[in-house]
């Protein structure tokens, strides 16, 4: 009466518990990326970014604990402090400074024509594509990243290769995000999460990267986040909106 036995030979064996857990976290990072891709509200997008960064720090801790790379603990802590706490706070501050966070979430543009242009907080209408096409494009791009990197056969010394494929998918989806979303905040978040994707790659294939370099990268990211924030303010100050649809005066 047992049914566990007679299974076909083509099954995919389960990974080890560690590999499975690592893959789950990596997939979580990818899902957070997709979340940012579709997210309609500024505040939630920043929160998703923080969550994604927190997952990365958790992954760094897992690697540190299982592969005996103690300096990764420091990296995890620092990355947590910067990407989960400082950068989101900086972004929040800057957005609050121009009064786009803290009010009630506006109706998405396009659905209620009256508020389409007036809602300065609204980034929901910034999609250049419809839901289905956007998600399908993102899935197709992610699949491309998945399978091309898998075909390169880069084996990681510390983590399962699947995580590498996932990280490349994160990077590509971040690019799609920056292309498809037409508002400055989404694009900035797209860049920051792009960097998260690169960090994930680094964790998979370059876990031994010297701490001092990692710290330099992180502080660079912080500076970039501040500059992005400043330019968002400049943009909002001039355009009175978050949309980049009007940034078309320079061409040729």
């Amino acid at each position: 009466m047992s049914l566990a036995g007679p299974v076909l030979a083509t099954t995919v064996a389960a990974p080890s518990a560690l590999a499975g857990g690592v893959n789950v976290i990596a997939v979580g990072v990818l899902l957070a990326e997709f979340g940012m891709f579709r997210q309609a509200m500024l505040r939630d997008q920043v929160r998703l970014y923080a969550a994604q960064s927190a997952l990365l720090s958790a992954l760094a801790v897992v690697v540190a604990a299982t592969r005996h790379l103690p300096e990764l603990y420091a990296l995890a802590g620092l990355s947590f402090a910067l990407k989960v706490v400082v950068v989101p706070i900086v972004l929040h501050r800057m957005l609050r400074g121009i009064g786009v966070i803290g009010g009630d979430p506006r109706w998405p543009a396009g659905s209620y024509s009256g508020s389409a242009r007036s809602g300065s907080t609204d980034i929901a209408g910034s999609h250049a594509l419809g839901v289905a096409s956007a998600v399908l494009v993102a899935i197709a791009v992610a699949a491309f990243g998945f399978f091309t990197v898998a075909a390169l056969g880069l084996a990681s010394p510390v983590l399962p290769a699947t995580a590498l494929s996932v990280s490349v998918a994160v990077i590509l989806v971040a690019f799609v995000l920056m292309i498809v979303r037409r508002d400055v905040v989404s694009q900035a978040i797209g860049f920051l999460s792009l960097e998260n994707g690169v960090s994930l790659t680094a964790l998979v294939v370059a876990a031994g990267l010297p701490l001092i370099l990692e710290i330099a990268f992180l502080f660079d990211l912080l500076v970039a986040a501040v500059v992005f924030g400043l330019l968002i303010r400049v943009h909002h100050g001039r355009a009175e909106s978050m949309s980049t649809a009007d940034l078309t005066s320079l061409r040729g």
């Binding site: 566990a4 076909l8 030979a9 995919v12 518990a17 789950v24």
Partner: peptide, 27 residues
């Protein structure tokens, strides 16, 4: 089907019960 090689619900339930690795796998 990819996990168990069949698409009988009983088989998947049995697979899930068989080890912790089957539960925390992302798929």
């Amino acid at each position: 089907a990819l996990v168990t090689g069949t698409d009988l619900p009983y088989a998947l339930a049995a697979t899930v019960r068989s080890s912790a690795g089957q539960i925390i796998r992302p798929a």
